[in-house]
Design a binder for these strands. Structure first.
Lengths: 410, 410
DNA sequence: TCGTCCCCGTCCTCTCGCACAACAAATTCT
DNA sequence: AGAATTTGTTGTGCGAGAGGACGGGGACGA
């Protein structure tokens, strides 16, 4: 629900400087988990004394705490630098990964630590309010153990579908058969709370999480291609998420692939999804249709690549070539059931990609599996809920909720 | 040659605040051409006195000058606000639009005013150094009339091909038959000057120019699709250029379109370019191959749409649908010979697009023709050359060259 | 025509944030 | 053990934007 702030042609206020520096410092601590003040000075290019002031403010806000100088491998002489780490009873968020057959909910602290998690199956033909109630129950369970002083900053929800950026409305979630569902509002109503809720597409959040603490740390141009019944992609370019005008960017599953191909649920024929989507793969390996949602487990069952998947691998590579030509990423992360598929058909994918992509963008691209395994979208949901803290820590804490456990216990 | 600066996790220095505010103010003056100080205060959200100080600095740098209160349509009472406009003898850049059959060179001042221009045909089989010499001659001619006190900030070059972002190397320009050409260095050597040179792809620059002062002013998510023998796209998303890891993003001409289609020069079969590229269109309308470079003029000759172009229009629309699904732009600007083609097959393009794009991204997208006609790439080249001024006006002027006319007259 | 109102530019002072320098502390190297 | 090195801490200074007071300039109404 929080519209991403866009830096327009505004001038920089000196109050904004403090906000920005405090937020950036927190972002670094969040990214590293534990970091020395000396590293912070060199990373941020500010003076020692300035960093000291910022760190002191973070501590007085209860966000971070001071640690003894880290005993790690040091280089050279000099006084060891005191560390900064996320406070144990610091702010946290609720992350929700809504899948086609199950929902995972976690309480996540700064630093990306999953403090508690719970999950439950959801019926793919369930109505939105039923799913919302189930998610709310999971949230209650997960919040129970939270320290009473720890503030809840917000809720982030990963959705397998098209989410409107301006207000988080789920425009279309094909595999849940939802149209124009205000799922954030439904969950909040079921909880009886009023906290910031952010929703986004699962592939977008996968990309975000892999960028911050997964396989794409330090890579500013990456694509997370998610096989999750449907096929979608999350794009990060220049270090920022590609969202598009409405927030629907990255729907690569409906790239034109084979005009003589099979009909797609979107109404066209031969979309890429009809060749590398879960249903196509299930059909190729003669997997019963009711197990499509667990396609990753089925694929994990193979010890050696079945020949029926060769064509799928080639189609995957050919589609990725279009993506490489279009986005010129440095890294492509293969998430969802592609995590299980890619190791089986690595050779076919790579050669098909090399065959069809332009040489210039091809030479710098690498295909990898997610560094966060199947938690990418969940941790990405945590990230968008945490985002306000990095924009303005003081304001975000001001609107956060304390003692959520007792509030929900009613 | 100037690597685009990326804002990393740096802290904000208070010196950086001044730089940023001065640059942002200049960006506003540049965008509007003439603007009142009162508008600047509300646009930038800064105090009146702060704006006054920034404007005074800009004037002392010789960049802007004060104008009498604008006599335009005013609203309400109150003292009229003094205007700020670009100084007549202020800094300028050289913009070069390298086409497949001609080069256009212009002297462009801040505010995007084309102060002088010249052009000459280039042979498509010419060697890079020959083209460089021709461009250098045009630059000399264009610089002649510049006031001796006006500083030259840099040179921007639009290239019909893949340009490496890190150093401006032309990796591939298929229609010039260039591979790995350091054209910036060649032009500088021919001129005997040393000024910052920036190169970029023509479609990227078209998007940039249309965003700043063309049909896409105020639109932060747009795509400029350029038909220029080959087909490419420049993407602006969230208000910033999509470049990709190497700078090659946007090569939509080689999206997979029809796997049973014609062979493409890239080595594949059925790329989108083989259906909507200049050669395909020329063949469809029985245009002689030697006039392919002037395809826009040929198309302009039609008073009513020839039926042979219907299929091309549909292919254009179908390809655009993939682009809409992938990028979710608010605006698609059809440049190059698409400027002449689109009016002929508007109905076919629109219906094909509506047929194949997903409803959510489709509902907010609009197709338009360039607001800058055929000067988009040229003015975009000016923009990237001017860019350093908006990052740090003082530093950019410090490294600018004065009295270029006499330096080149040798 | 005059007075009033409204808005803007200018000047001055204030506040706030970061830089800088000096000193103390903690560790490594010789 | 002493020198060298790096960092934390403290106090001072500088610079940039904010804010208020004042004057100027035009629109509007009586």
């Amino acid at each position: 629900m929080s519209p991403q702030q866009r830096r327009s042609g505004l001038g920089t206020n000196q109050e904004a400087v403090r906000r920005h520096n405090l937020g950036t410092l927190l972002r670094h601590v969040h990214g590293a988990g534990q970091i020395s003040r000396a590293e912070l000075t060199s990373l941020m290019g500010l003076n020692r004394s300035t960093i000291a002031g910022l760190v002191a403010e973070l501590e007085s806000l209860g966000i971070s705490e001071r640690t003894t100088p880290v005993g790690g491998p040091r280089q050279g002489a000099g006084r060891p630098s005191a560390g900064v780490r996320i406070a144990a009873e610091g702010p946290f968020v609720i992350a929700v990964d809504l899948g086609v057959d199950r929902a995972v909910v976690a309480r996540v602290g700064l630093g990306g630590r999953v403090l508690e998690r719970a999950q439950a199956p959801v019926h793919s033909d369930g109505e939105a309010w039923q799913v919302g109630a189930a998610v709310a129950a999971l949230i209650r369970r997960v919040v129970e153990g939270a320290p009473p002083t720890a503030p809840l900053v917000g809720i982030g929800i990963s959705v397998p579908g098209l989410v409107r950026r301006s207000d988080g409305l789920i425009r279309l979630a094909p595999n849940l058969e939802w149209h124009d569902v205000s799922f954030g509002g439904i969950v909040l109503a079921a909880l009886g709370l009023d906290v910031p809720v952010s929703l986004a597409n699962d592939a977008d959040l996968g990309a975000l999480a892999e960028h911050i603490r997964g396989a794409a740390v330090g890579v500013d141009d990456l694509i997370y291609v998610s096989g999750n019944v449907g096929v979608g992609a999350g794009v990060i370019t220049g270090g920022v998420r590609l969202e598009g005008a409405g927030g629907y960017a990255g729907e690569v599953g409906h790239l034109r692939f084979n005009p003589q191909g099979r009909p797609c649920h979107c109404g066209n024929r031969g979309c890429w999804e009809t060749e590398v989507g879960a249903h196509a793969i299930a059909e190729a390996i003669h997997c019963p249709p009711d197990k499509v949602a667990q396609l990753d487990e089925v694929l994990d069952g193979y010890t050696k690549p079945p020949p029926e998947l060769r064509a799928t691998g080639a189609a995957l590579g050919h589609g990725l070539a279009s993506i490489v030509n279009t986005f010129n990423p440095r890294l492509i992360v293969l998430g969802g059931y592609f995590r299980s598929l890619y190791p089986l058909v690595r050779a076919e994918v790579n050669s098909a990609l090399a065959d069809r992509a332009l040489p210039a963008p091809l030479e710098s691209v690498t295909l990898v599996l997610p560094g966060l395994e199947s938690d990418s979208a969940l941790l990405g949901a945590a990230e968008i809920a945490l985002e306000p803290l990095f924009v303005d820590p003081v304001a975000a804490l001001g609107s956060a909720l304390v003692d959520v456990g007792s509030r929900l216990a009613v």
